[in-house]
């Protein structure tokens, strides 16, 4: 059964923007991100004046409660949101480019649920509490599910089509979440510990956690950004890319490592956050066009921006309660996914 999902690359007029304009746009977006991040720090149970935020960042006074709150609660939170948003969007863009699947997303493809299962296993059976070790289990879970989903999705005629990959992802997700809930049924304490994390949240993280994740995030980002040119060629199809001199085997391996590192770190930091990797590359493609050399950096900024905003939304709408940010992204991204399917899947 052939999948006639219109590729974003086959749209009538690929947008080509001047490099200067794109660079300025990127700078502006980064500026906007910084502003919103500061705003996010202002927000909270007790509103803090921007000047205090500034002071807490650059002129830290350990005796001030406000400074303490900003340094230990608000700042880590917004940093986690920005990092996780950036790397999930990046991972999504890479998967979409590599598999030529506009529906690819670390959550939808089951990779996040695998990482989550890994973490739950780690907590339950190995009583592991530090992020460093969490991450390893998250990576293992992400890697295993990524391989499984890709192989399952490649079965049968036509290789890995978007439909089959999405289905395989959904199946593996169902599978991992069965296991996760089973473990949690048998172990109430773990359930209480991880249920908020399972919904995907950026609250309650400290700077040490972020520092521990930085090496993985850094390597993943560098690998991902090095793929820009190759992914632009891969968008024309693997055979064409090979004809253009791309070493497609290597591109795939590097991309796979990058995706596992990025998605695994994201889950270790914030739990499974769905749809972000779907949403951001589509929006960015609309702005930047299809050149991955520009698309990938834009996804980093855009993803960070979106998750920081989603976190603010989650804190604002049902004040004083909070909606976990993973739920916010699902509510934003789900309709987008359905829209894409409804109007882009012909038969």
């Amino acid at each position: 059964m052939a999948v006639t999902l219109a590729q974003s690359t086959s749209q009538p007029k690929p947008k080509r923007r001047a490099a200067a304009a794109l660079a300025i746009g990127l700078l502006l977006a980064t500026g906007l991100l910084l502003v919103i991040m500061t705003l996010s720090i202002n927000f909270g149970a007790a509103d803090v004046a921007p000047s205090t935020v500034w002071a807490a960042l650059f002129n830290y006074d350990p005796t001030s409660t406000q400074h303490l709150i900003i340094r230990t609660l608000r700042m880590p939170r917004v940093l986690v949101a920005a990092i996780v948003g950036a790397i999930l969007a990046l991972a999504g863009a890479i998967m979409q480019g590599l598999t030529r699947n506009p529906l690819a997303d670390a959550g939808l493809l089951g990779i996040e649920s695998g990482a989550a299962l890994g973490v739950v296993l780690a907590i339950t059976f190995f009583e592991i509490k530090t992020l460093n070790l969490y991450s390893i289990f998250a990576f293992a879970g992400a890697a295993v599910t990524a391989v499984l989903v890709y192989s399952l999705g490649s079965l049968g005629r036509g290789g890995p089509t978007p439909l089959k990959l999405t289905l395989a992802g959904a199946m593996i997700t169902a599978f991992c979440s069965s296991f996760t809930s089973a473990i949690l049924i048998l172990n109430q304490q773990t359930l209480d510990e991880v249920r908020l994390w399972l919904a995907g949240t950026v609250a309650g993280r400290d700077l040490g956690l972020i520092a521990a994740s930085l090496p993985y995030v850094g390597v993943g980002m560098v690998l991902a950004l090095s793929l820009g040119r190759s992914l632009t060629a891969m968008a024309l199809g693997e055979d064409v890319a090979r004809g253009l001199g791309q070493r497609t085997g290597w591109v795939k391996v590097i991309a796979a490592i990058a995706v596992v590192l990025l998605a695994g770190s994201a889950v270790a930091l914030a739990g499974p956050i769905g749809f972000l990797g779907l949403l951001v590359p589509h929006i960015m493609r609309f702005i930047v066009g299809i050149d991955y050399r520009w698309l990938l950096p834009y996804c980093i900024i855009g993803g960070a921006l979106l998750l920081v905003v989603a976190d603010i939304i989650g804190r604002v709408v049902v004040r004083p309660m909070e909606i976990p940010v993973g739920v916010v992204t699902a509510l934003l991204g789900g309709p987008m996914f359905i829209y894409l399917v409804r109007w882009r899947v012909q038969r």
């Binding site: 939808l108 399972l198 919904a199 995907g200 976990p324 739920v327 789900g334 996914f337």
Partner: peptide, 9 residues
């Protein structure tokens, strides 16, 4: 996927 997110919430 959306339904599961709300369930988790």
């Amino acid at each position: 996927a959306v339904g599961s997110a709300v369930t988790t919430l």
